[in-house]
């Protein structure tokens, strides 16, 4: 057996505690740059309207007033979420978000895949613009648009005679349908770069090595795209979970409890209801943080492969 070449120095495995410390030092060093001052307004905004409110919510949510008037720390307000309308709101939010994001993930993935096959720069630009606009669209106007088309007196509702199918826009299924308006573009926006990044050489290497198209997708294409697909799904879940205005217009208070609607309702009631609203809010923040963390990890993995 002939020995090969002396292996060159390798970049080596990237993730090690030493590398992590080095990156930390580099980041601190970069923050000493005068240009960092430009981040000050953003930092102030984050502090005043993101960090302080969350800390305030957390403090209120865990502050418990005893019968004798003494104040302490407890989980009473969180325990209140385990029953009644609030627990139903959590379950409903999870249900609508899971189903809505799953449907959007499937449709968005197929759409992005088909767009990537066309390989048209003009189409990519158009899709990118429309996806980013639609993904951030929503609120009351969206709900009104759906009411006009799919509401009980809506144009499409009448034309397709949806009444006979039992479909109602003012139900959780209606919410799922309405959410597709911004969830599908979100999914397309997140996954299209991944499909575009699947190199022709990978397919050709698969073929040269004797692999079929099925082999390629099962062992190469889908595993490479999987982090982006899962990331897109997670992001859609988060987007659906946090939607408030359009759901409020469509469903209103009490019809179909959702976390944002219940928070809104509690804040409009007596001050004693506020700690429960805060507990509900903190629950939502925790779910959002988990979603963002998962999305970030999956995106990083996907980006590393599709570079």
């Amino acid at each position: 057996m002939t020995a090969g070449l002396t292996p060159q120095r390798s970049p080596g495995p990237p993730a090690s505690p030493r590398a992590g410390r080095r990156r930390g030092r580099e980041t601190l060093g970069a923050l000493r740059h005068p240009a960092t001052l430009a981040l000050l307004p953003l930092g102030v905004l984050l502090l005043l309207f993101f960090i302080l409110p969350i800390v305030g919510m957390a403090v209120i949510a865990v502050t418990v007033t005893a019968e004798d008037g003494s104040i302490g720390v407890g989980a009473d307000h969180f325990l209140a979420l385990t029953s009644g309308s609030h627990s139903q709101a959590i379950l409903n939010s999870l249900q609508v978000s899971a189903v809505g994001s799953l449907i959007a993930a499937v449709i968005g993935t197929v759409t992005a895949f088909c767009i990537s096959l066309i390989r048209s720069a003009a189409l990519d630009s158009i899709v990118a613009v429309f996806s980013s606009v639609l993904a951030n669209d929503g609120g009351a106007p969206l709900a009104f648009a759906f009411i006009v088309t799919l509401g009980n007196a809506g144009l499409v509702f009448s034309a397709l005679n949806l009444d006979a199918t039992g479909f109602s826009l003012y139900s959780w299924q209606g919410l799922v349908v309405m959410y597709q308006y911004f969830l599908i573009p979100t999914m397309v926006m997140v996954t299209l770069p991944t499909f575009m990044g699947l190199r022709r050489e990978w397919r050709e290497a698969d073929a040269a090595l004797g692999g079929s198209s099925r082999n390629f997708w099962l062992r190469v294409g889908l595993p490479i795209a999987a982090p982006a697909l899962l990331g897109g799904w997670v992001l859609c879940f988060g987007a659906a979970f946090a939607t408030h205005a359009s759901a409020a217009v469509l469903i209103g208070a009490g019809g179909f409890p959702l976390i944002p609607l219940n928070i809104s309702s509690l804040l409009g009631q007596s001050p004693s209801s506020q700690p429960v609203a805060m507990a509900l809010g903190i629950t939502m923040v925790v779910i959002a943080v988990v979603v963002l963390f998962l999305f970030n990890r999956l995106q990083r993995r996907s980006a590393r492969w599709v570079q």
Partner: peptide, 29 residues
């Protein structure tokens, strides 16, 4: 078709499957 020609190919651009280790890449065929 190319997958039935029994031809090995090395490409100009890096064509290794990024989701697989070196060993799995070599084993792929």
């Amino acid at each position: 078709p190319p997958n039935r020609r029994g031809i090995g190919m090395v490409f100009q651009a890096y064509s290794l499957f990024p989701n697989m280790t070196v060993q799995d890449n070599v084993e792929y065929g």
